[in-house]
Design a protein around this nucleic acid. Structure first.
Lengths: 215, 215
DNA sequence: ATCATATCGATAATTGTTTATCGATTAAGC
DNA sequence: GCTTAATCGATAAACAATTATCGATATGAT
């Protein structure tokens, strides 16, 4: 009825695995290996064979029975699908330890992300440069985002400031937020928040050490 | 049959939410608020009311109908359950941008983690200090971990080195690994790997901007 | 004292994700 | 050329997690 020729819906979980596949495939020597199979990928990454096949099916890079997938084609298909190459621009709020690390990190461009500027409220660091990126006062965030049509925001501020900064970003037209603060942000439905929650991860780690985790 | 008096199994997903509850509860003014209800927490964190109740039930801090939970007791129960206070020691391998940020970050002790030392292979940084923590050559990792009975390892090395470092940590007796490299590590069953995968998160972010995510 | 209401606690239904199964297909060996 | 074996692709089953429903209970109002 309504179904036009849309990209097939893909689950977040699958999407999160795609970069792992891509990374693994790239690490292979494409001179020696021309063809790669799902069982081989699954074994290397310690995943279920069928899961890998299902994931790859969702990006439509048809394989051939008995042999597998063409390595080169699979890599380019994955890169195309993930949009590597089309670099999105992002702004970062909170130039503390973590913020500095992210601003300085050179590897994001590989994944299609370019942090153009950092924002902070501390006069001592405003005006400085970190990793070649300027640090501006937070008040300028809205103007800059609107002017440059930036639609990714990275939050590395303390937890108590996170929601306020988040609201600011949303009002500035940011579409997706990468949140490193240990807080659940409240946003409108059409805005995506991707949490990189260290506190959550630590909870899992430390609980494992106390051997109380399920299974 | 075999079931003794064990802690009830708790899912990883629930466990990951507990720090968020704790953080939110702590942000409340315990002078003014003595009692807190599930619906209130759920609303503040944009979660389902029943989900919150179910999560809290798993740490057994019984609430009272019509009123809710005692705020102070709930906080201490959560802290007790998450083991905040009992600080686990960790080592970090890979003193690059991200590694430096984590070494310098003061907030981990709050969550029960203390990074005691960093390891690297670069002679230029070996022997230096970052955030008050020494940087040692990677070869000393095994000896130090065994001697100090460190059981958490943090990996912030480049992807192609991650598995080797991981293997080294496992052989050194590390029980849980916090992995920041965009790689799926292969480890024995009894070792926990917690991935903080930036590439995966970025994939979700950038896909959202292209409006192809399911739902 | 009784009633209405908000919340807990448990159970059931729904949804989503991973694993297992089965037939179809194709390359290699005989 | 035919058989064998390995893999893809799709479907079905199992599992896990979230959301919805319902009764019980305690608080505050009448």
């Amino acid at each position: 009825m309504t179904a036009k020729k849309e990209s097939p819906p893909i689950s977040v979980q699958t999407l999160r695995r795609l970069p792992l596949y891509l990374n693994h495939l790239k690490s292979l020597d494409s001179e020696k290996i021309k063809i790669i199979s799902c069982p081989a990928i699954a074994k290397a990454l310690n995943l279920n064979e069928v899961l890998v096949r299902k994931d790859l099916a969702s990006i439509k890079s048809g394989g051939r029975p008995r042999t597998g997938y063409l390595l080169e084609k699979l890599i380019t298909d994955l890169e195309m699908y993930l949009g590597y190459g089309n670099v999105d621009e992002a702004v970062l709020a909170g130039v503390g330890h973590l913020g500095r690390a992210l601003l300085s990190y050179k590897g994001f461009e590989t994944y299609g992300l370019n942090i153009v500027v950092g924002f902070d409220t501390d006069d001592k660091i405003i005006g400085t440069e970190v990793g070649g990126k300027k640090v501006l006062p937070l008040e300028k965030l809205t103007g800059l985002c609107k002017r440059m049509h930036v639609n990714i925001g990275i939050i590395t501020v303390p937890p108590d400031k996170a929601q306020a900064v988040c609201d600011l970003m949303v009002s500035a037209g940011i579409q997706a937020i990468w949140n490193f603060a240990p807080v659940k942000l409240v946003v409108p439905d059409d805005i995506l928040v991707q949490n990189e929650n260290m506190a959550s991860s630590l909870a899992v780690l430390s609980k494992h050490l106390k051997k109380k985790i399920k299974k």
